[in-house]
Design a protein around this nucleic acid. Sequence first.
DNA 1: CCTGCTACCTGATGGC
DNA 2: TGCCATCAGGTAGCAG
Length: 269
Amino acid sequence: MPELPEVEAIARTLRPLVRGQTIRRCQVLHSIAVRPQSPAELRRGAEGQRIEGVERRGKYLLWRLGRGCLLMHFKLDGQLIWFDKPETQGHIDVALQLNAGTLGFVDRRHFGRVRWRAHPDESPEIRALGVDPISPRFTPAQLQALLSAARRPVKLLLMDQTRIAGLGNIYSNEVLWHARLDPRRRADRLTSREARRLHKAIVNVLRRALKYCLHPAPNFRDPAWWFQGLEKILRVYGREGEACRRCAGRIRRIEQGGRTSYFCPGCQR
DNA sequence: CCTGCTACCTGATGGC
DNA sequence: TGCCATCAGGTAGCAG
């Protein structure tokens, strides 16, 4: 599930909880979650390491260790759950035993990934990421340049992690609704005025969502909590057939690049 | 390089 | 009730 705001909230909340602790033990319970790395490789990299910090890169959660780093990607269903006892209950894929308890990377579908890398910002998955949309480096001019270089529908460009890192299907839909743009518009055919509108929508939607994700802060002890209730801030995602919150239109649902897009044909042009 | 498509997994949901 | 098809917020890998 998590897109940029959720992962950012995880990073900020987790940081003070784990910084300075040591990974005493790293158990790989489902080796598929570390593929294509081997469980031994992950264990060797993680065990005994002190946690120096926790950051976000795109939708990746990055644990800075004394030596090297851990990269986690939650994909659709991955979660972090805190267990006070080191028992392995539920669908834990990887268990990190810290001084204060055990943190489980939980993913029933086993889409999510955990891996160790020697140099965070030189690892291929991080190098492949495009600009971070909540960094000051993300300017209207830069978005304009990305748009004019793409002949795809703007929705697919927004979801391309090698261009802009962190938007997923939900927030891409939301952003386009706020910018009043039809998701099917070819990226390179947006006017500069529309590009500025889109830039503003990206920044605002993410900023608002992040605030929402931080209040209340993520609760790693309650598996049922995991970003429930986020629908409340969504204006268009998942609302097929319902009334548009801005005009008299009805929300439509279409497929783009194998994913679902929601938009209002009345006010998104 | 750019773009589009499928596979990867499991569980929830809804129609019949 | 039970069965089956469909759908899910992501991305790697491959083909054209």
